[in-house]
């Protein structure tokens, strides 16, 4: 049971690395962006894991409840920001991919490199 308390951190590490692996190895630019969003989501899990307190509830103060235990609100605030950052990066990355497709006719990295060296 003691080790289960670390399970979240391991899943964070594994998912993070799966995302990173996708970004580095895949040729397809959209697949790279999918990997990037998995990679970023893993970090959300790290932050939200820290906020949990045994027996706690969401940090919303209710009148009349004596001695409540709240989970930590601060990591939640930070991750709200990080989620918005994630969607912004993805949107911008996709806009670049669309432009690449229009000017190169492909979204595979090796095709693009090959087409540039033709010149």
């Amino acid at each position: 049971m003691e080790l289960l308390g670390y399970y979240n951190y391991w899943v964070f590490a594994v998912v993070l690395c799966l995302g990173l692996y996708t970004v580095i190895t895949r040729n397809n630019l959209i697949k790279k962006l999918l990997g990037l969003s998995i990679f970023q989501s893993a970090v959300f899990l790290l932050y939200i894991t820290m906020d949990k307190v045994d027996g706690g509830t969401a940090p919303i103060i209710q009148k009349g409840v004596s001695d409540p235990i709240f989970s930590n609100p601060l990591p939640q605030v930070l991750i709200l920001t990080a989620i918005v950052v994630g969607v912004s990066t993805t949107a911008l990355g996709l806009a670049i991919v669309v432009r690449i497709k229009e000017s190169y006719g492909s979204i595979e990295e090796d095709d693009i490199l090959a087409r540039d060296s033709e010149l």
Binding site: L16, Q40, P75, T89, G93, V97, S103, I112
Partner: peptide
């Protein structure tokens, strides 16, 4: 047009860099 793949690469590596920074801040905050 060669600017576009270059910026895409920058976007990927820049995001990885920023996310690594975020992980570091998270660990030290923890």
């Amino acid at each position: 047009r060669r600017g576009l793949p270059a910026v895409f690469k920058y976007l990927i590596l820049g995001t990885i860099g920023a996310t690594f920074y975020l992980i570091g801040v998270g660990l030290i905050y923890m």
